[in-house]
Design a protein around this nucleic acid. Structure first.
Length: 489
RNA sequence: GCAGCUGUAGCUCAGUUGGUUAGAGCGCCGGAUUGUGGAUCCGGAGGUCACUGGUUCGACCCCAGUCAGCUGUACCA
């Protein structure tokens, strides 16, 4: 007879999602507080919008029968309306601005931090749920708004502990990309493919991009990707644009540069060149001028960008948990999107914004040693058959601002100490019958004990020596714990 | 979606040319130790060998299909 086995669900995390806890969350919180502080100091105010939006407010399409969740997580409301989880924080901002347009001051400046969701295939370092931290200026067409964001991002990265030489901001302009495609006479239907190919430059290198602009490219698994089928002459023009940029982007230098790349097409890109020149003129006085460069290879995948685009890149190698070097994309990116609000109102509203990828930036900071996984130290009060007394001692420590936990489990003392170890507790507090009779308390410095344990061979010796352990007067509890915590830190 | 690789205990993995009752380490539970962490020792629980079908006297092993995972690539408003 077969064993009756109840049908149980398998405990498993949906792919592309993550559980996070304790020290990691504490570190993230510290980082977000720093970013928030800089954003607020520039006069941006917080705005929170919900996780769900009506699907038509988020993008161009409605889910269809065949692929109801293409790219986004969607569901149908009771009244048959499609809702979707937001895939970024910019689309909800556009909705908010359109809905409250007449009441908002212009320019309207807000920051937003929150989780976003994408229903896509997850990969290494790519999740289906992640956090973004955005700042946007809506209602100003001035390049000053773009320049300000670039300067602010530099301030953020420095406030987070990165050195100036650790990062670089790369600036480009969609109008220049459009201009060069005009000059190369690339058909409108192929422009998307071409821009996406250029966007892959950092990953595939110039050779890979050349293949994608031309006949196509085979990846390392042998799969073939079709190319944009451009003529050699067209590819040459695009490559010339990608490979050269004046180091000092004054308007005069930019115009000379452009005349060399796209002679006869000076008019089409003039606006873009002027915007670039203005941005760099403003950046010049920021103290961050060495960190911000013109880089024609920056595209940004999203096609709603209409003018300046930018991304923050790290200049040092980042390693993953396995210690391998990883190709690290940008930690922040953004640009100008002048048409997004017009989708709702019909009225053109210029806007520009920057978005920080929170988990990427966090692993970069940890890789650099600028952020460490750490929680406040924990003091564990062991329960020696008198939980009320453990509560009381823990309470005394809390009153002094010390994070302390009274043991509320049911195990014996050796197991309680093992528990304290596993929790990573800094100190264990014991007050049993002997101590109570003597009016004393025993403290164990667990971190110190862990060190000493390496040189003690036998359990008997360990028990006899009782390393890193002291017995103190009852009244000295808070003072002595404070002293021990001070030694550890 | 396309391509390659991989599915054996909670985790990481062994498993001989196809041979009887499928193993190890870690983790977990109990004990050596009713008030002292580490180490060590003893004992225990835990398996639809991803699933379905086929070949065979006999399949964890060979074949086909399906599903799942990983990696690359495409898409990413």
């Amino acid at each position: 007879m077969a064993k009756d086995k109840p049908l149980r669900p398998k405990a498993r995390l949906p792919r592309g999602f993550r559980d996070r806890s304790g020290a990691e969350l504490a570190a993230e919180r510290r980082m977000l507080d720093t970013v928030r502080g800089v954003y607020e100091s520039y006069g941006f105010s917080a705005l929170e919008t919900p996780a769900f939006e009506y699907t038509d407010a988020l993008g161009k399409f409605l889910p269809d029968i065949d692929r109801p969740n293409e790219g986004v997580f969607s569901l149908r409301d009771e009244d048959e309306q499609w809702l979707s989880l937001r895939y970024d924080l910019t689309a909800p901002l556009a909705r908010y601005v359109a809905e409250n347009f007449q009441d908002l001051p212009k320019p309207f400046r807000r920051y937003a931090v929150g989780r976003v969701w994408r229903n896509e295939k997850p990969g290494p370092g790519r999740f289906r749920e992640f956090t973004q931290f955005d700042a946007d200026t809506v209602g100003s067409s001035s390049p000053a708004a773009d320049a300000e964001l670039l300067i602010m991002v530099c301030d953020v990265l420095k406030a987070l502990g990165l050195a100036g030489s650790d990062f670089a901001l790369k600036v480009n302009n969609r109008k220049l990309l459009d201009g060069v495609l005009d000059a190369a006479r690339v058909e409108p239907s192929r422009r998307g493919v071409v821009l996406r190919a250029i966007d892959k430059l950092d990953r595939l290198g110039l050779g890979g991009v050349r293949d994608l602009l031309g006949s196509g490219r085979k990846d390392e698994s042998g799969d073939f990707t079709r190319g944009a089928e451009l003529e050699a002459a067209q590819i040459r023009i695009v490559e010339k644009f990608l490979g050269s940029a004046p180091p000092d982007p004054t308007l005069g230098n930019l115009e000379r540069w452009w005349a060399d790349i796209a002679p006869g097409h000076e008019g089409g890109a003039a606006q873009g060149l002027a915007e670039v020149a203005q941005i760099f003129a403003l950046v010049d006085h920021s103290g961050h001028q060495g960190r911000i460069h013109l880089d024609p290879t920056v595209v940004r995948g999203l096609d709603y960008y209409t003018g300046p685009v930018f991304e923050a890149q790290l200049t040092f190698p980042v390693t993953n948990e396995a210690g391998e070097a990883v190709i690290f994309g940008s930690v922040a990116g953004g640009g100008r999107y002048d048409d997004l609000v017009a989708r709702f109102t019909g009225q053109a509203v210029p806007a520009t914004g920057i978005s920080i990828g929170v988990s990427r930036l966090m692993s970069a900071l940890m890789s650099r040693g600028a952020l460490t996984l750490a929680e406040d130290p924990l003091v564990l009060v062991l329960s020696m058959g008198d939980v009320a007394r453990a509560f009381e001692l823990a309470h005394q420590l809390r009153q002094a601002g010390i994070r302390s936990e009274a043991y509320v489990g049911t195990k014996r003392i050796p197991d309680q100490l093992k528990y304290a170890d596993k929790r990573g507790a800094a100190i264990a507090v014991l007050e049993g019958e002997d101590e109570r009779a003597a009016g004393t308390i025993t403290l164990k410095d667990l971190a110190l004990g862990l060190e000493l344990a390496k040189s003690i061979e036998t359990r008997a010796a360990w028990v006899q020596e009782r390393p890193a352990q002291t017995t103190i007067g009852r009244a000295d509890l808070v003072a002595e714990v404070t002293r021990m915590l001070g030694r550890q830190s």
